Simulated scan of single mutants.
Amino acid sequence: MERPGLGSSTWVPGRTLLDWAEDVRQLDLAELATVGFSQGAPFALACAARGLTSAVAIVSGGDELAHPESALPPDVRQLVDSVAADPAGAEVEFASFGNAETLWRLSIDGSPEVDREIYLQPQFAKAFRRALEAGFAQGSAGYAHDTVLHFARWPFRVEDLTSRVHLWYGGLDGNPTHSPDHGATLAARIPNVVRHYLPDAGGALLWTNAREILAELLAR
């Protein structure tokens, strides 16, 4: 599924995280299990907040950075504050910055060697870049709006989730917008949660540990 404004999905101005959950509801899928990778995390948790999924795996996922309990590095705090003060202006800034090539370079240059070994494999790099290019096929507006939704307060409380939630973080993942403390604070807020912390892994867990992640997600 492609979120509005990404790929070939129609752009919807002013949409929210919970609007995405309503889009998913229209598919009428039974016993849905959900994976949220990186900035997909709040969208996956929005589905859980609306009771659409019984189990969620958040993999190298974006944290609720605007939550008062989040201890943020100064540069991330600045981004969160700018989104809170002027979300429309922040969206313009994100749109001017975001494109497929920039995100590719950030993924490669900002990742530890354990992740680059995955990302730079020829077949993987081709698929990864194709996915990034599809995401920006309509321009950068969809990416920019998703980023604002990530950095703003989420319109649901993770404390109220009833789904099983598995958090997966690698200790070598240095992206502070994933989670500054590798999901520790987020795990403390979610009732039915298991936090998996792999100290020698990076942010590419969805590919390096896919079998383990999906087996845990589907276990009953």
Rank of each mutant, 00 (worst) to 15 (best):
A184D: 08
G139A: 06
L103K: 03
A144H: 03
H145Q: 10
L29V: 15
D181R: 00
D181W: 02
D23Q: 15
G14D: 11
A210L: 12
R130V: 11
E159C: 05
L132S: 02
S8D: 13
A100Q: 00
A184L: 13
V76F: 03
T34N: 00
D86M: 11
N209F: 10
L29R: 05
G202I: 11
G110V: 01
D23A: 13
V158Q: 02
G170N: 05
G51R: 04
E91T: 09
L149K: 03
A48V: 04
V76S: 01
Y197N: 02
A41H: 03
L205Y: 08
T208K: 12
A48W: 08
P176Q: 02
S54C: 11
G7M: 04
G61A: 03
I58H: 00
Q78H: 12
K126C: 11
A137S: 15
A33Y: 06
D19G: 14
A204W: 01
A204C: 03
H196Q: 09
L18C: 09
G142F: 01
A46H: 00
F97I: 13
D115R: 06
Y119S: 01
L120V: 11
H196D: 00
L205C: 06
E212V: 14
G139K: 02
E93I: 15
P73H: 06
T53Y: 06
G40H: 04
L120W: 05
P180M: 05
N192F: 08
R157V: 11
P13N: 06
A33P: 01
T102D: 01
L161V: 11
